[in-house]
């Protein structure tokens, strides 16, 4: 599989945990520790098949990142999952309006993660 899955989280623990889970199903992983870094990578031509982003991250939060990413060429239909510790309905609605494909609450089980990735990214 040529294209990667981009993980965006300001927590090194989450980045490592997610990377290891996704590598187990043969996925190439790209990491970014902030919304700005993720956006920069995508603007520099990084091609991805899916993005998983945290909600609360420094200057640019996950919802702002999704809004910005959706405006990039070729990113309108790429699945974007929000992975966060929060479960409030209003936040979910906000993420949905911004263009998120789904909402996952931490901690997410490896099996569940693998299943959802396989569901959203054909061929994994």
């Amino acid at each position: 599989m040529a294209n990667a899955i981009l993980i965006v989280d300001d927590s090194p623990t989450m980045l490592m945990s997610m990377e290891n889970m996704l590598i187990k199903i043969g996925v190439r992983v790209e990491k970014a520790s902030s919304g700005e870094e993720a956006l920069s990578k995508l603007q520099s031509g990084l091609k991805i098949r899916m993005m998983i982003t945290d909600l609360n991250m420094g200057a640019m939060n996950g919802i702002e990142l999704i809004r910005a990413v959706r405006k990039l060429p070729g990113m309108s239909f790429v699945p974007i999952l929000m992975l966060t510790t929060e479960s409030q309905q209003d936040k979910r609605n906000e993420a949905k309006s911004a263009g998120a494909t789904g909402w996952m609450v931490k901690p997410v089980q490896p099996q569940a993660m693998m299943q959802i990735v396989r569901q959203l990214v054909p061929g994994v």
């Binding site: 479960s87 609450v105 959802i116 569901q119």
Partner: peptide, 19 residues
């Protein structure tokens, strides 16, 4: 926020929702 988090630290209570 803290209250919501306190109920989801267990993986059994994890939420996954596709829009």
């Amino acid at each position: 926020k803290a209250s919501h988090m306190s109920h989801i630290t267990s993986a059994e209570n994890a939420i996954i929702e596709l829009f």
